[in-house]
Design a protein around this nucleic acid. Structure first.
Lengths: 223, 223
DNA sequence: ATTGCAGCCGACCGATCGGTCGGGTAGGGT
DNA sequence: ACCCTACCCGACCGATCGGTCGGCTGCAAT
């Protein structure tokens, strides 16, 4: 941890890479450490020189994923610009995050379900809470952006919490939908074209579905 | 199979009930058949008198869940009324479906990930394809509703596919979000109050985010 | 040259996995 | 009375699970 970010493609990183791919595909319980070790080019016992348990590997993977997302999203949330501009840019960068590493969305979604089958050792629980806190921090900042925007009149009055849930669903779920999404769009959800279009559609949703009406539409009588 | 829907609280149904709860909580790989049997009040071997394998149990659970959703949603999709009315009612009933059985959303989301660790026996693959087809049928009808609505001018021009993805995310993800959702709202996502509010927010999203502008806003000029 | 340690490994542990097998029992049809 | 079938069970199988242990390397500091 003190100087982990050194240059060599260390075994530790390799383990995390392999574990990330496998956990995303088959989940915590569905992945065996033998498989992780083999794909990392190591003996199974070697895993335990870098991590104390399977759960620790899983949590390390999750922490890295969250950090990757946070790196992109946090500076935008802290930046200037109107509420709407900031929201647009946050969603853009979130989608970029999810599209860049196809494992991210699935791991995040899975993490909502799978903390159940982690052992409840004290250190595991502590690490899991750390993850939770780090996720909660991101969501909290997004929530604040929505609330502020609503209060300032930049967004139409809505439940910030529900809106946040919808936006998570619109982004994370989409990139986790895998074969179903591929069947729906006729191409992988990670293809450049689909990603570009997804950004557009989300932006349209936000602008005409969340943003306050520009000026007009004073009392539009419905036909 | 021929007359399965009889009255007795049969062992078969009990197994499915127990398995549904467990699979939703811990996933396919995370659940052992011993646990299923014990909670169903049976010996483990008895499971194999009703199902040929663990995978068959899982797929039977999934099929039942899908059927439950379809029962509610299909008649509405086939009913009359304007596109917008039908969409409103479909979303309402979908949310009711998901809220009624807290396992549904998680099982559906998990099913997008977890077909990977099913064995690929021929009969399992056939049953899984059956599930896929049944899910695809529901989605197809919703997709058609969106497309028709767009073509008829009831909805603003948008990608029907992306809109469908967003709506799935807004509903299924929300009710699968579990502890995270509970932390966000301060109460379970299945609480009557949260469910009611969720319907409202989704309806607002659809009406002011998807429905065509009443009359005004003629200038389509994007900024 | 010696020591120490990080990294890696094969062999092994008890537990649990999905699944099989043979047998027991109750009830309905004949 | 008979048998057949549906249902259920305990015992057992080979495989795999996460994790431990002792020992083998090679490099770095002394």
């Amino acid at each position: 941890m003190t100087e982990a970010s050194a240059s060599p493609p260390s075994s530790r990183e390799k383990i995390l890479d392999v574990a990330e791919a496998l956990f995303a595909r088959r989940g915590y319980a569905g992945v065996g450490l033998r498989e992780v070790a083999e794909e990392a080019g190591l003996g199974k016992s070697s895993l335990f020189h870098h991590f104390r348990s399977k759960a620790e590997i899983y949590l390390a993977v999750l922490a890295r994923v969250l950090e990757r997302v946070n790196e992109r999203v946090a500076p935008i949330l802290a930046s200037g610009g109107s509420h709407l501009e900031r929201l647009d840019r946050v969603l853009d960068s979130l989608i970029d995050s999810l599209a860049e590493h196809p494992t991210t969305a699935r791991l995040l979604l899975r993490s909502l379900f799978e903390d159940d089958d982690l052992p409840d050792t004290d250190d595991v629980k502590r690490a899991a809470e750390e993850i939770d806190r780090s996720l909660a921090a991101i969501l909290d900042r997004m929530l604040r952006l929505l609330r502020d925007g609503i209060e300032a009149g930049s967004f139409r009055p809505a439940s910030a919490r529900h809106t946040l849930q919808t936006l998570i669903g619109a982004t994370v779920y989409h990139f986790a939908s895998g074969e179903l999404g591929e069947a729906l769009f006729g191409r992988p959800v990670f293809s450049a074209e689909t990603v570009r279009r997804r950004k557009e559609e989300i932006k349209n949703l936000v602008h005409s579905g969340l943003a306050a009406a520009p000026v007009a539409a004073p009392a539009g009588g419905r036909p």
